[in-house]
């Protein structure tokens, strides 16, 4: 009797697993986000440049295009990309590096619009005041003896996530300075732990994003480099992306999204004070702190060449097995 029960339970389990697995194997367009064209679910990660999409909502730019956008905060870009690919989200925010990583693993994604980035004259501006252009910064501990990126060889350097933007851009800075990034001892630390560890000398340097760059400076850490602008030079860095199937199925909605986002981006650049206030609300960082950080720039186009440059650099640094080919077909343009 008992064995029969066990066998029955086993069969039921196998059947359940079979169902789950075949559901997983099915094309990724059966997600909940598909449906009407006019409502788009968008993943954001709660950073200052979200002021762009927030302004598009507040100023009625989406409404004007006849769409409704529902935003959801996702834990990190990788989670957002997975959700967008499986159809849980229609569109998500992703910096270009996770986007290129995903593309290199054959995740079918399209770039819709720019979410943040650098002006075309960013590199020249950096010469005057790097911290005003780049919201990422490489900071060394007071007593670490580090004065330039090359000194990071053999040192403990903290980043918010491995193989992501800060690590890649810092590795680039070290290589540019004639050092060997492979000799760096990377640590993953959340920003608060990173600041504390930097002060206690448990890490020698930290890659930080605003507003933690301001806090690092206040605690006496030494500014070493602006790795972001050195790596990307110009153009879009943060991207709005969607799965290929969403772009096909909701093409009208996606077109409207692109138009509204670019209207918002232009508005944010022109009304910078207002955009900063929105950024402070979105990130819950005091407005005074936001004002001290680098000027966010919301590009009004995505150029395939800028993404290709990042892709080539990733491959040259060994973060991609080979560069992903990016051309105009990867970027959806509004008709």
């Amino acid at each position: 009797m008992r064995t029969r029960q066990i066998a029955a339970a086993g069969a039921a389990l196998a059947a359940a697993a079979a169902l789950t697995l075949s559901a997983c194997g099915a094309p990724a367009d059966s997600g909940s986000a598909s449906g009407d064209q006019k409502t788009l679910k968008v993943g954001i990660i709660g950073i200052g440049s979200d002021a762009g999409i927030t302004l598009a909502q507040q100023k009625g730019f989406f409404e004007k295009q006849g769409i409704t956008v529902e935003t959801t905060v996702v834990a990190n870009p990788a989670a957002g990309i997975a959700a967008a690919q499986s159809g849980q989200l229609d569109i998500t925010y992703a910096p270009s590096i996770p986007y290129l990583n995903a593309r290199s693993q054959k995740v079918p994604l399209k770039v819709l619009a720019a979410a943040d980035g650098y002006r075309d004259n960013a590199v020249a501006e950096t010469a005057k005041d790097a911290t005003a252009v780049d919201d990422t910064g490489l900071y060394a501990g007071k007593d670490s003896g580090i004065t330039r990126p090359k000194d990071l060889e053999g040192k403990k350097v903290s980043v918010p996530a491995r193989k992501a933007q800060l690590e890649v851009t810092i590795a680039n800075a070290v290589k540019q300075d004639g050092g060997d990034p492979a000799k760096i001892n990377w640590m993953v630390l959340d920003p608060n732990s990173a600041l504390q560890s930097l002060e206690q000398g448990r890490v020698d340097a930290s890659g930080l994003v605003a507003p933690f760059t301001i806090k690092a400076k206040e605690s006496g850490a030494k500014f070493i480099a602006s790795p972001g602008v050195e790596f990307f030079e110009k153009g879009a860095v943060g991207l709005w992306i969607a799965g290929d199937s969403t772009v096909q199925k909701k093409s009208a909605g996606v077109q409207s999204f692109i138009k509204a986002i670019y209207e918002a981006n232009a508005y944010a650049n022109e009304n910078y004070d207002e955009a900063q206030k929105v950024a402070a609300e979105v990130t819950k960082v005091p407005l005074e702190t936001v004002k001290q950080t680098a000027m966010t720039y919301w590009p009004t186009e995505v150029r395939a060449a800028d993404l290709q440059r990042a892709s080539d650099k990733l491959a040259a640094l060994g973060y991609l097995p080979e560069a992903v080919k990016i051309d105009d077909a990867d970027v959806v343009t509004a008709q």
């Binding site: 697993a17 079979a18 697995l21 997983c24 194997g25 690919q85 499986s86 054959k106 995740v107 079918p108």
Partner: peptide, 14 residues
Amino acid sequence: WWYLASAGSLNPFF
């Protein structure tokens, strides 16, 4: 069963 069912999978997550 997993082996057979997933053999031709093109889904990058599975």
